[in-house]
Design a binder for these strands. Structure first.
Lengths: 342, 342
DNA sequence: CTGAAAGCGCTTACAG
DNA sequence: CTGAAAGCGCTTACAG
């Protein structure tokens, strides 16, 4: 096992001090352009990479970004969303030589403790925050700690932290208008976890959009995002009288569960019931009928969030940024409202 | 922001040297039992945690475990397997204060370069290796590098590295026997990525099991694990004459795609065609009919692998270990073979 | 069994 | 613009 070069080797080879190499490496003033170029050439040739441990210990950047995920593993694993998001984050981070540190946590206290630890140990340079709540304690604590962070979620809940978000309200309005245009007058929604900021936004948007169109009975049933909960909510909604002719689901796993429940009840989709899913993962096209969905580029969303965090770490001023909203992709699960039943 | 205690603070408070604290912390000889207890009490009380950067730099453990995943994000995101696995790894690692470093890679070269870098930088103490090939270069390189590693996959492909594996061959035999007992004589399989070690094992086991039962036409069509490929393979197999009366899929996303294809072709499941899925994620119960599946505890599998790696890092001798094999969970998608059609 | 000291590989004031 | 030096918080031989 060969010893890898250290900053001292590079310095010796370039005929400068270690400090000069450090300045050249980190793009700081203190070396002339010519020296910098010479140093970076050697760095390149010897494929030198500064030790992250030494860098972190000396107070420099660790080149690691942290992501914590709440525990309920069943939910996480089922949501293609998270793996897509992680994949998007990673794609951006690794091209910039940043690593991603992942930590599952049980609750908010554990999560905040994790942030403190990471900061104290210089383990990470910054973190990404998911699934924010309105008045999320993580947001205020992170700001207080001074740990750079980007919220992946609505700016309404990101406080002083920059956020990357997509306009869920607009997407929901699009879905409601689309269904209304098909003649649906009774639309209900199977929502996500009630406490989350984006769920609140979606629920409010749904209620408002239905009200604006004069649609009554625009109920939202909250769930925990699992298939079981989606199935139960669907059963509850379809047992109502008059029952809804269209259902909007807050993720695709619940939409699939709801589709199956409807079919088991003898309802034809879309003749008797239209179904719209959220987060168009490839499963939506694999079921019968294929699901109309609100599609968004989750990998791109993750990459975007990573870019914003990296910009913040580079000292650039960053503000909340809007990613492209989810767009409706009509497929076989939606159709004209069944007039006979209305 | 308060300064967190360093090892010097603990040493001062305990009235010993920093070295003594270090020995006490790492369970090494060099301190008396009484001193050790006193030190650890103070460590506990002050909630001291050694800086990972300093530890790594000084040649100690970094308390980080690395996991690399090949790029095709669409596949990854769709496979609940990976998120479940990560969740299982994390559950075990975090209780032992280890962190998980995640890196997406494009190919094997990048992956091996990543291992070298991690090792050289002391970024990780060990790694977990997924999706091994027969004669996997990563396996030999890791052994040569001396980077502790555990293979999550068959020991046949893990070389000198310990592996944690489940007996896929046994599971496949169980599925084939179950279908044969239902009267199926023409069973085909939609397989995973042909090059992977566990796919080879499954394919061989499938062929052998069918041969042993005198079942002809036991074809396996390889795929890339995506729903599209699963659908295409299903179409291909169902176009055969005589067509199979039962299909075994190497993951559940393809099973769902196959189910939909069969239904679109006018085949009733299970009356005309039985369907068996692999990796029983909750989606299997959400479709209609619910899928018979080979169920395994993926989180437990991940936790098991993490435990073995941690044991190896602790210097304990470790050997390859078998996890519980996937067990058949019969549901609505399998039934007696359609005699009329045979 | 314990203490004092060197060293890991960086970064960053501080002098020139 | 550059060099020499201290220091980050640990671990680990090396003396006692």
């Amino acid at each position: 096992v060969e010893r890898r070069p250290t900053i001292a080797d590079i310095a010796r080879e370039a005929g400068v001090s270690k400090g000069a190499v450090s300045y050249a490496l980190n793009g700081q003033p203190g070396v002339s352009a010519a020296t910098r170029r010479r140093i970076l050439d050697i760095v390149e040739r010897r494929s030198f990479r500064a030790s992250s441990a030494a860098r972190a210990l000396a107070g420099g950047a660790s080149r690691v970004v942290g992501l914590t995920l709440r525990r309920p593993a069943r939910t996480l694993a089922l949501e293609p969303f998270f793996m897509e998001l992680v994949s998007g984050l990673e794609a951006e981070l690794s091209t910039r030589s940043y690593a991603l540190l992942l930590q599952m946590v049980a609750d908010q206290d554990e999560e905040i403790a994790c942030y403190r630890r990471w900061l104290a140990e210089h383990r990470v340079d910054g973190v990404l925050v998911c699934d924010v709540l309105p008045d999320d304690r993580r947001v205020s604590d992170l700001a207080a700690l001074g740990l750079p962070a980007v919220v992946i979620g609505p700016p309404q809940a990101s406080g002083a932290l920059p956020s990357v978000w997509s306009d869920d309200a607009a997407s929901l309005v699009e879905a409601v208008r689309y269904l209304a245009a098909l003649g649906h007058r009774r639309i209900a929604r199977v929502g996500g976890i009630a406490g989350l900021a984006h769920t609140v936004i979606r629920t409010d948007a749904f209620t408002a959009a239905c009200a604006a169109l004069g649609l009554a009975g625009a109920v939202t049933v909250p769930t925990d995002y699992t298939g079981e909960a989606g199935a139960a909510a669907t059963r509850e909604l379809l047992a109502g009288s008059p029952r809804p002719t269209a259902l909007i689901f807050d993720n695709d796993i619940m939409a699939i569960a709801g589709l199956t429940v409807a079919q088991d009840l003898g309802l034809r989709v879309p003749a008797d019931l239209s179904v719209v899913a959220w987060d168009d993962s490839p499963v939506c096209e694999l079921v019968h009928p294929p699901l109309t969905a609100l599609t968004r580029d989750i990998r791109g969303y993750g990459a975007h969030a990573a870019r914003v965090l990296l910009a913040a770490l580079a000292g650039e001023p960053v503000a909340s940024q809007q990613a492209a909203p989810a767009q409706l992709t009509p497929r076989g699960s939606t159709g004209p409202a069944a007039l006979a039943r209305t």
